[in-house]
Nucleic acid binder design. Structure first.
Length: 274
DNA sequence: CATCAGGTGAAGT
DNA sequence: ACTTCACCTGAT
């Protein structure tokens, strides 16, 4: 399968911080372990190619049916920062990841940078995940496997104070706490996710968005808050982008974290100081 | 070597 | 309801 679409950029997706198991193994070659499978994606001349018989599966995973161009077109033309961000982040898509994996990886993500998150997640998979055909890497562990591992073994992997959160959340998931959440409305889903230890507002929105495809999710992390403080006077009106909040968040986040975006933020802050 | 990193929960005002 | 603080450890 070969996709030539300005709204599908594997590298940007890998750098976007929503998925920690999509890794560039050689220039232009990316290996993804997702839902117990391995997929190799190669990028050449602005097109992405991958080999898989199960195109329906990956179509859902990469959210291929959604019209991202139409979302970008919704950006307020008077909002220069967002317009720049949407253009800069063009190619990002919202992946539909496994809810349990999303839950645990974003509990891990707190107070960690992206390389550190990847290291921890790979260690966790290597220790407790099933083998994956064709790859040296392992699948993300099941709730049962992590629950059986226990807090002290997780702490020994370097997870620090997150170990009890992960152990308890895995136990809850193994007991069925994630079952049937798909049927819930957005706010009920958010409330259900908040019951897992180590899950606050930020992680809950990440899981809603990246694990359940709920585009009303708008995770507020330090980068988004920096953008909102510097550019929007401390309050960003998500209501204008109803049904696409999470995509808008990704554009703001990806651009805000980039060197170009940081220069723009610095300039805004200096302008305000005058 | 010190600081920081894609937060959360508990305790304090 | 809002503010402050401790928390593990790898990356820079």
């Amino acid at each position: 399968m070969r996709i030539h679409d300005e709204d599908f950029d594997v590298r940007k997706i890998a750098e976007s911080g929503q998925c920690f198991r999509l890794i560039e193994t050689a220039p232009g070659v990316f290996e993804l372990i997702a839902r117990g499978r391995r997929l190799v994606l190669t990028e050449t001349d602005g097109a992405v190619a991958f080999e898989s018989a199960d195109t329906a599966f990956w179509s859902e995973y990469f959210d291929l049916v959604r019209d991202y161009k139409a979302v970008r077109a919704r950006a307020d033309q008077n909002d220069a920062f967002l317009c720049t961000a949407a253009e800069y982040g063009k190619g990002i898509r919202i992946l539909r990841q496994e809810p349990f994996e999303t839950l645990i990886t974003f509990i891990i993500s707190q107070q960690k940078n992206m390389p550190a998150i990847r290291t921890c997640v790979e260690k966790l998979c290597a220790a407790y995940g099933e083998t994956v055909e064709g790859s040296a890497r392992r699948a993300f562990p099941t709730p049962e496997a992590l629950a059986a591992a226990g807090e002290s073994a997780l702490r020994a992997l370097g997870l620090g104070y997150r170990a009890p959160y992960i152990a308890a959340s895995a136990e809850m998931a193994a007991a069925g706490a994630l079952d049937g959440l798909d049927a819930l409305g957005d706010s009920a889903l958010e409330a259900a996710l908040r019951r897992f230890p180590g899950v606050g507002p930020k992680v809950a929105h990440c899981v809603m968005l990246f694990g359940y495809g709920r585009l009303s999710g708008f995770p507020r992390d330090v980068w988004i808050n920096r953008v909102i403080d510097a550019v929007y006077g401390g309050a960003f009106d998500t209501a204008r982008y109803k049904g696409a909040e999470g995509i808008i968040q990704q554009y703001l986040f990806y651009y805000g974290r980039s060197p170009e975006g940081q220069r723009a933020l610095k300039k805004k802050t200096e302008d305000h100081a005058q």
